[in-house]
């Protein structure tokens, strides 16, 4: 029923990006997000766009799949863009004015810039989840959060909780399908009526779902106990993360990218001669 949840789903592959160390990818995404917020001028937008295009190309994930997962933010995108257009204050070249609302050329550019930033953010972070299995992702996070152990932060527990949560999403979706069928057979109607009626109609699905989620949690806890699982500090891993040449390359590219953007923003006005800024 709800099978088309593509947002952030893993897209199996064997590409450069797939093979990178998840830790490097996580760092890269963080650097990328910072870079996106530093972006100010047209050239830096182009730099970011190029980076995104190269990254998608290097992942061998079809651009269609990447864009499809970004479709989810369309509503947010339209909302923020229109708010920015109508409520941008301080624009000088005003095109249209009514009461406290005015549309200016600066406002339009600002809205466009914001929208582009949002799109880049989503594309960058979905590329991470598209090319990294949830297991690898949590492994990477665990490894990156290791320094937090010094302040007694339960890094390993947080990581295992995260991977269990991710693992259970498809199981719970299947469960929802089953329960919905059973209640439909008893005459439940999920498709007609207004918003409130539909929300109420979901109660016979949600309650059994919660009950079964708790039951599964209990069973899983018992199964973990039965295998003497505990988060001892000396657990070894089946697959050890290794930092390779791809990661070094990724690191160099990211340093270069952020350096370039800072350079474009602050130092080389004269060099590029840009007057069009947002």
């Amino acid at each position: 029923m709800n099978r088309d949840i593509t947002f952030g789903q893993y897209y199996p592959g064997d590409s450069f990006v797939h093979k990178m160390d998840p830790r490097m990818k996580l760092i890269l995404v963080l650097v990328f997000i910072t870079a996106v917020f530093l972006v100010k001028s047209l050239y830096s937008y182009i730099a970011i766009a190029l980076f995104v295009i190269v990254a998608i190309w290097g992942s061998h994930v079809p651009a269609k799949s990447v864009l499809k997962s970004a479709k989810g933010i369309l509503v947010v995108l339209i909302l923020t863009a229109s708010l920015n257009i109508f409520f941008y204050s301080g624009g000088e070249r005003v095109l249209w004015h009514w009461w406290k609302i005015s549309i200016s050329v600066e406002g339009l550019f600002f809205a466009l810039g914001m929208a582009l930033r949002l799109i880049f953010l989503v594309l960058g972070s979905t590329l991470l989840t598209l090319t990294t299995t949830p297991m690898n992702l949590t492994d990477g996070m665990e490894s990156l959060m290791k320094p937090l152990k010094a302040i007694r932060f339960p890094v390993h527990d947080v990581a295992i909780i995260m991977s269990i949560a991710l693992r259970f999403i498809p199981i719970l979706i299947e469960e929802v399908d089953k329960i919905m069928l059973a209640q439909k057979a008893r005459g439940a109607d999920f498709e007609s009526g207004g918003l409130i009626k539909r929300a109420r109609a979901l109660l016979p699905v949600l309650i059994p779902l919660f009950v079964s989620a708790f039951r599964r949690a209990d069973e899983l806890a018992l199964a973990l106990d039965a295998r003497c699982y505990n988060a001892t500090p000396n657990r070894t891993k089946y697959k050890v993360l290794r930092f390779g040449w791809r990661d070094a390359a990724g690191g160099i590219v990211s340093v270069f990218l952020i350096g370039l953007i800072i350079a474009i923003n602050y130092s080389f006005w004269g060099l590029f001669g840009i007057t069009w800024t947002v």
């Binding site: 069928l181 059973a182 057979a185 059994p208 009950v211 079964s212």
Partner: peptide, 11 residues
């Protein structure tokens, strides 16, 4: 229609 493990539909 009675599904498998119908007790999981009680709510």
């Amino acid at each position: 229609m009675l599904f498998q493990y119908p007790e999981y539909q009680l709510f």
